[in-house]
Design a protein around this nucleic acid. Structure first.
Length: 249
DNA sequence: ACCTATGTTGATAC
DNA sequence: GGTATCAACATAGG
């Protein structure tokens, strides 16, 4: 679920529902999700503080605190942020903050691939996929021999594009996921960036990458929603990929 | 019951 | 350095 659009919604949820409330305690007992911290470390660092601002770059989020450390949050493959909800069963709330006012904020994740850490390191992250400028996009994406889709999903190249958004964007742009990234013309790269921004913005406003136009056809036997041709299905960049061989060259 | 598939990242190997 | 593969976690579905 969580690609850039979902993470942006999660960030907004923290901003709207989690700021300026005194932190009474933190449940950081999941040593996998909170690695490399020991249980109690995040708790003692955040207790008594308040969250003051929520930021995002790509799929990475971080929250500032008043005079305290920065809290990094990542949704992994199935995480989401909930505020003021009762604890989920089966310990699905892998990390949570209890506020002094009785409310709470939780990182809910069945699969435990999400992360909560203090002072997160985002130095290996490229510019945000929705913010990257034209020239930067050209030089960062338009190189190498890796398939275009793999390049788009490389978080150190640009941050935020996952499997579904990559397929949707390439389908919108009419570009094959298999094209060696370095072989794209500047015009193609500019067009790709334009479609990436459009697909991303649209997904944010509509609620997530699952609202894309290609999604409904993205299964075995699916047809291109535009031209009706059978979609091709292959593993590209390590992920299941669907595309229209008629329109995406 | 068993097998496959799943939005993520990171470590590892070539 | 760039690229590819597998493992980490846990669930859902055929």
């Amino acid at each position: 679920m969580p690609e850039l659009p979902e993470v942006e919604r999660a960030r907004a949820a923290i901003e709207q529902g989690g700021l300026h409330r005194e932190i009474a305690s933190v449940d950081d007992g999941d040593t996998w999700v909170c690695r490399p911290h020991s249980p109690g470390e995040i708790d003692s660092a955040l207790c008594g503080h308040r969250l003051t601002a929520a930021h995002r770059r790509g799929k990475a989020m971080w929250v500032e605190t008043d005079e305290g450390p920065i809290l990094g949050l990542h949704l992994g493959m199935a995480g989401r942020i909930v505020t003021d909800e009762k604890p989920a069963p089966n310990n699905w709330d892998r990390f949570s903050i209890d506020f002094a006012d009785g409310g709470r904020l939780a990182l809910r994740d069945k699969r435990r691939l999400s992360r909560a850490v203090l002072e997160p390191d985002h130095s290996a992250l490229g510019p945000d996929a929705a913010e990257v400028g034209r020239d930067s996009f050209r030089t960062r994406v338009g190189r190498g021999v890796a398939p275009l889709k793999a390049r788009l999903m490389d978080q150190s190249v640009i941050a935020g594009v996952g499997n579904l958004l990559a397929d949707e964007t390439l389908w919108r742009a009419g570009l094959s996921p298999l094209r060696p990234a370095g072989e794209l013309s500047e015009a193609e790269l500019d067009h790709l960036r334009r479609e990436l921004r459009a697909a991303t913005r649209r997904a944010i406003s509509r609620g997530g990458v699952h609202t894309g136009d290609l999604i409904s056809a993205r299964h075995r036997g699916g047809d291109c929603p535009r031209c009706g041709a059978a979609l091709d299905r292959r593993t590209v960049g390590g992920r299941t990929t669907y595309w229209c061989t008629e329109e995406q060259a």
